[in-house]
Amino acid sequence: MRRRPRRPRRLPPLGSPFELLLLACSFALAAYAGARLFADDWTAVALWLVGAALVHDLVLLPLYAAADRVLARGLDAAGRREWTMYVRVPAALSGLLLLVWFPLIGGTVDRRYRSATGLAADGFLTRWLLITAVLFGGSALLLWLRVRRARKLRPPAVH
């Protein structure tokens, strides 16, 4: 990180002058735009901006990491560590689609969506469930093929 670790000891540790200059320019631009961003309702905007980082780093990430740990440990305990990806991939993809499209899938914007666009709002949940089913089904099929192939390669006596 620090490009120049050697500097006179008496000075407080300032760090690289290049970095300082660069960050000062960055903060100046951010402050110029930030003054306008925060002009209307600064507490709510600050809450959203800082909250977005906090919710991601301290809630979303620990949640999906914990879920993943439970999965990996469970399969590990069952002696099936190599199956992990066959569960992780469809679960993560389905979760990702839900994360991105949750207002439409969850139906929280149904009324506005229907009246503004003239489109039916009730298909999103169904389609998301179908995609999820296809993802897990496809993954299960791949795993089944893999297990079958492995069985064919090994004589049953060894098993």
């Binding site: 990180m1 540790p13 300032l14 760090g15 970095e19 960050l23 901006l49 980082a53």
Partner: peptide
């Protein structure tokens, strides 16, 4: 100081 400012800048980056 540069490292402290960089971490503050990361809040703006991530947030």
């Amino acid at each position: 100081l540069a490292h402290a400012l960089e971490r503050l800048s990361l809040l703006l980056l991530v947030g």
